[in-house]
Design a protein around this nucleic acid. Structure first.
Length: 236
DNA sequence: ACATTAAATTCGA
DNA sequence: TCGAATTTAATGT
């Protein structure tokens, strides 16, 4: 049985087949990715990649939610990105061949796919479509951080939360379809760089505006377009 | 920081 | 395997 025939009965292959860069590859190229990729599961709170560890793999969240963060000497954690299911990440460190500058930690129980560095670099070298997808990926990330800095300067709390939430549904970075995300207000706080109480208020403002619904341990986006608009020009 | 409530886990039948 | 009791996690003020 070849890889494509196995797709229907293997969750990892199914996941790879639905990845955004799949259609740009030849079947032979795709088969190599399938052959080389592995998955591991992590319980909530587990560390997937230590900070400063060698970047041996390109990563994807098959299921669950992870965060990319650093922990300072005083034990304070700063989160740089939340990564929901369906997303590929960690390509920066693999491309550079440098140790990971940040730790990757599971926010809730998660299944992670690992693609070896050699396979990833081989795709970059051999697939124009893949390289193009990768450029778009890096560009989307750059746009995210530029806007984040701008948001920090503007300083409106609700706007920043709206922006961070909306970005979790950015189709280039995070090609998932589900509008409900299981994340605590504590994590939203870390993600947006504010204390939980502030995140709590901001979330309820957004709920009052009819853009989201806050539930115990999760947030549901009701109006993604509205959330994006809110994130741009803040209506006060 | 503290009180409340929801959810997960344990335990006994 | 069911449900009450306990513990843990998240929310609300």
């Amino acid at each position: 049985m070849n890889v494509r025939q196995a797709t229907l009965c293997n969750p990892l292959l199914e996941f790879l087949a639905s990845s955004p860069w799949r259609e740009g590859l030849t079947d032979e190229q795709f088969d190599r990715v399938c052959a080389d990729a592995v998955t591991r599961t992590f319980v909530a709170g587990a560390t997937i990649c230590l900070r400063e560890s060698p970047s041996e793999h390109w990563l994807a969240v098959v299921d669950g939610l992870v965060k990319v963060d650093t922990v300072a000497a005083d034990g304070r954690a700063t989160t740089f990105a939340g990564v929901p299911g369906g997303a590929w990440f960690g390509e920066g460190a693999v491309l550079k061949g440098e140790p990971r500058p940040y730790a990757v930690v599971a926010i809730r129980d998660s299944t992670i796919a690992f693609v070896p560095r050699a396979t990833f670099l081989w795709l970059v070298d051999n697939s124009h479509a893949f390289s193009r997808w990768l450029i778009d990926q890096l560009n989307a990330r750059l746009a995210y951080y530029v806007a984040l800095v701008e948001g920090l300067r503007l300083g409106d709390v609700n706007t920043r939360v709206a922006y961070c939430l909306a970005e979790l549904f950015n189709p280039q970075l995070y090609p998932n379809t589900q509008l409900r995300i299981e994340i605590s207000q504590e994590e939203i706080g870390r993600l947006t760089g504010m204390v939980r109480q502030t995140a709590y208020r901001a979330l309820h403002e957004l709920e009052k505006a009819g853009l989201i619904r806050v539930q115990y341990g999760s947030i549901e986006v009701l109006d993604l377009d509205g959330l994006k608009k809110y994130a741009l020009g803040a209506p006060t």
